[in-house]
Each structure stands twice: as C-alpha cells, then as structure tokens.
Design a protein around this nucleic acid. Structure first.
Lengths: 225, 225
DNA sequence: GCCTAGAGTTAATAATAACTTAATATTTCA
DNA sequence: TGAAATATTAAGTTATTATTAACTCTAGGC
C-alpha cells in the first residue's frame, strides 16, 4: 500500500454497501476503513484520522448527522471531508445535512462509480495540488519541462527569468512587491541591486514578445494579459 | 451591499431559471450575474472573475462542460468554484461532468433552497480569505491586485491615490481629518503642503468617474456612495 | 586546465510617471 | 457679501523604472 494513500472511513450499517464501497475505493488506491454504526464511526475516526468520511444518515447508535455534528465540533476534524449518504432525499434533509457541515450529500441509491467520482472531485478541491502547468490564454508555462510557449511557439528563458515569470503567473493579477520577488526568486540571504529585477523583467518581456507583465510604479509587478 | 459579497455567475438558457436563482442568491447576499449561453458565460467569467459559477450543461453556443473545461485550463480560474446543473442525471454524465473539474454536479429539477444550501456548503469549504478586498456597491478595491474597479471597469490609480482611496473606503461614512490622512498615507515625518491632498482627491474623483468622496469643509474627507 | 557562451549582475544614463507646489478660480457658510 | 476653505490647472520637481552596455561568474566542451 502506498504510504501517501488517502484514508477513507465508511460508516454504514448495511454490510453489502460497506463491501461494495470498500472494494471500489480500494481499487482507486485509497486505504479504506469501515464502521457499522455511529459509535464505531466516531471511535475509528478519532483513532485513524481519515482524510474523508462517508456517513450513512440512518445508522444505529448515532445517526450520520449526529456523528457529523460531533466531528465538526472538534478542531481536529475541521478539515476532514465529510460526505453524507442517505435514502432521505427530500429537500429538508438535504439542507439539514449540509448545514451541519457536511461537504456533500448524496442520495441513495448511488452507483459506486459515481460515489468514487464525487469523492475524487472532493479531494481534488480540498487538497492542494502540486505546482503544475500554468495556462493563461495563449501562454503556457510548464515548470516540469522548464518550458514556456506563447501561441504554441516555444520560448527559451533562463533559470532566473523562468522562476520570476512563474512566480508572477501563478497568481495572475496579484501584484508582487520587489521585496517579495527578491525573497522568492533570489532568497533572503542574497543581496542584489534593485536594477537586477528590472533587467530580468525586460528580458522576459523581450523574449515573450507579448506584453503580459505590468509595472505598478512604486509597488511592484504583476502578470496580466 | 455587504463588503464581503461573493460574486456568483449563473449561466442557463432558460430565463425562468436564471431569474429564480438570481432572486434566491441575491436574497442570501451574493452579488449575482447571469449569462444566457456558453460564449456569454466565458466572456463574463473573464471580465467579472466570479467566486462561483453555476453552469447549465445544455446551453447554446458552448455546453456547460465545454465552458468548465476551458475555465479549468486557465490558471486564473483554478480556484473558481464551478457547479454543473443539468437534466442529464445518468451516471455517465455525472462522472464526465465531475471529471472535467467541476466541484459539484446537481440534477434538475432542484429546489432553489437546496441549490443555495449546496452553494453555501461549497463556499464554507473552499472560501479563500480574500484579504482586504473592499466591495462597496459597484466599486471594488483590491489591495492585493492594487486594482480598483467601478462597475466592472478597471481603473488605474497611482500608489498614493490608491492608498488614500483605500484609507477612506475602508471606513465608509467616517470623516478623515486632513491630519489623519497625512499621517496614514504620507507618514509622520514627511511634510507636504495642504493642497497636495486636494490634488490627489481630485485625481481619484476624476479617474473613478463616480462621485464617491465627499468634502466636509473645515474637517476633511469621507467616502460615501 | 583553458576557453567560450550564456547567465547573471552592475552601473550609468534616459525616459517616464508620480508627486508636489504654486497660482488662480470657485465654492461655502458665517 | 466676504473671508476661509477647497477645487482646479499647469508647471516644476523628484522618484522610480527602462534601457543599454560592460563586466563577472560559472558550467561545459575541448
């Protein structure tokens, strides 16, 4: 099992459902735990600290909603993803479920495939993805390949130029102060003159051909189409 | 209007649905925009930079899924919440929709109340601390982007002008004495003539086009719609 | 090890935008 | 109405950035 595998806890009183979900989620590489009632769900949640918890609403001992409320009251589970699963599909139940702090509310019957997809969508959103390719209209910046393309045409940037461009482009619109730029690209210890940034900015502008870096005089620079 | 108002864009070809959603979301304090087809949705998304976008899957020009894919490929929209809305409720459509990067997928018909609740659940999870953005009616002031918008149109202010506007706008209605303004914007040591403030105020008024700074003769200035 | 090309930096100068001032006009309120 | 305060305008001054070229440094080829 992958060491970085995400832990999922499934709490449902029906053994069939536990098994089907366990099978499908394991197949996707998740480390799966199960519980058969509300108390067991709480106990295992505390011990395992899962990344995501699927709670059936109708369970013995404690309902899924109660478990959800209890978990959300704890600081430890503030960032845990909670998904409610239920046969109660009326508006009132849905609203109540989501208002207790659940991240999603799915009505039964649900196909395992759909459930897995929804779980993956939740993970995609709630766990920060690593730095990847940036696309901004006709400009693409790939830090893996160290490659910049403008309208499909590859541009060759030097290391510092690339790092500076990536810094600005990964938050388009946001202004970066000269100090921030120095810290991020050059590091805190290194001391370079103020003109150094200007010269790099100029080279980037020159090589890219398009005007995508805006000067905010007295403040810094920002990436902008 | 609430200062922390979040912007929601609704794209659906049915006027009834647009209207119902707009009504219900506005009632919850969101700032709502609408689009009637895929192309308009893209255009408005780029211009408005909403926090959340509701996309009908079946739309003229471009489908909701196409719009979603296009948006997700852009760095600018990587943190925008996207919610697909559709009559297609089969597993395949749901999986496909979520896999294009949507954050939620809701089948029609859906009660407006449920939709609003789901949207609030999404915001609860995905809210990013939009540090310091001031939104006052049609004016937004973003210190991170160093950007002022009036009715969606960006206005370019110089550093001192921006700082002065931000100072006044962060406490609308409150009068700032000329001394306070000098201390806050220029600092205690710097000594400048009295007319300097006037000239900056004038430039702001001129550039913004709308009359949002009121003179209180003998006292100072205040921000006011 | 020496040479070379390109990266990175610096420094000098030019260009530009921001800021301030001062002179004049206008408004406001006793 | 008239004095005080603010608005407006244009011109002057300063601060910041752009540009250019020369210089240093480093990695890789020979």
């Amino acid at each position: 099992m992958d060491k970085t595998a995400r832990k999922v806890l499934i709490a449902d009183d029906e053994p069939d459902i536990r098994e089907i979900l366990q099978y499908n989620l394991s197949a996707e590489g998740y480390e799966v735990f199960t519980a058969k009632d509300g108390d067991e769900a709480l106990e295992k949640a505390k011990r395992i600290q899962p990344d995501l918890i699927v709670l059936d609403v109708m369970m013995p001992k404690k309902s899924g909603v109660e478990v959800c409320q209890w978990l959300r009251a704890q600081a430890t589970f503030k960032d845990t993803i909670i998904l409610l699963l239920t046969a109660l599909n009326d508006d009132g139940s849905i609203i109540k479920g989501l208002e207790t702090g659940a991240d999603d509310y799915i009505g039964k019957p649900v196909s395992p495939k759909v459930l897995v997809t929804r779980i993956q969508a939740l993970f995609r959103r709630l766990r920060k993805p690593k730095a990847g390719v940036l696309t901004l209209d006709t400009i693409s910046i790939d830090p893996e390949q160290f490659l910049v393309q403008v309208a499909g045409k590859p541009i060759s940037l030097a290391k510092k130029e690339f790092e500076l461009l990536y810094l600005l482009a990964h938050r388009p619109g946001r202004v970066f102060l000269r100090n921030e730029i120095l810290n991020q690209v050059w590091g805190n210890e290194v001391i370079v003159g103020d003109r150094t940034i200007d010269v790099h900015i100029r080279k980037i502008r020159q090589k890219m051909g398009v005007d995508c870096i805006t000067t905010v005089k007295g403040v810094g620079y920002k990436f902008e189409q």
